[in-house]
Amino acid sequence: MITAERKPFGEIADMVQDAKKLLILGCGSCVTVCMAGGEKEVAMLASAMRLANRKAGRKADIREATIERQCDREWFDKVAEDIEWADAVLSMACGVGAQFCGEAFEGKRVVPALNTKFYGATERQGVWVERCAGCGKCVLADFGGVCPIARCSKSLLNGPCGGSQDGKCEVDPDRLDCGWQLIHDRMKLLGLLDRLEAVQPLKDWSAGGDGGPGRIVREDATL
């Protein structure tokens, strides 16, 4: 999923302070799972804003809504009226959804309530961890299913740097495993350690973010 974290309340409040009619729009997909922007988070933020407004003597109408996804145009239909009504939309989707909402309703001010973080998985309840860097050319097969790009702090393709100690990465030993220790251990388990001896050539980064904004066309699905 795409993971995100809610921005600090003060930052959000500053962004929308002049909106008299505010729609807080949640997203029911990834950011609901990582507890950043789903229905419950919308309710929490709306309560906080109403309480803060009341305390500060500001008058503002706040509506709450959550749609299935903000990265697909069709789901906006359900809330089109609310969006039209609002002076500003506070999107609780990832950066994709927040932008797409603005594209779907040109001329509407859409501001983000979340900081989008990474492609991640739920490690355990309440903890999400990065697993993919979206490089556009998956190399997992060469590294025992552990991604050196996402999981090594330096995205090294040819083995660990000198900062690997006791399975931890020197960049933050309390929090980060050394990605290369994980690759090494997995390849050993799979009996494929010798494959790590091959020198990996320069990577083609143009397949991912370095090739400019990405675009995928699936011909048989287009009309």
């Binding site: 309340f9 309560s47 906080a48 804003m49 309480l51 305390k55």
Partner: peptide, 12 residues
């Protein structure tokens, strides 16, 4: 605890 944080944010 989280609610307390929300209240703090809102000045309550």
């Amino acid at each position: 605890d989280r609610v307390k944080q929300v209240l703090k944010d809102a000045g309550i």
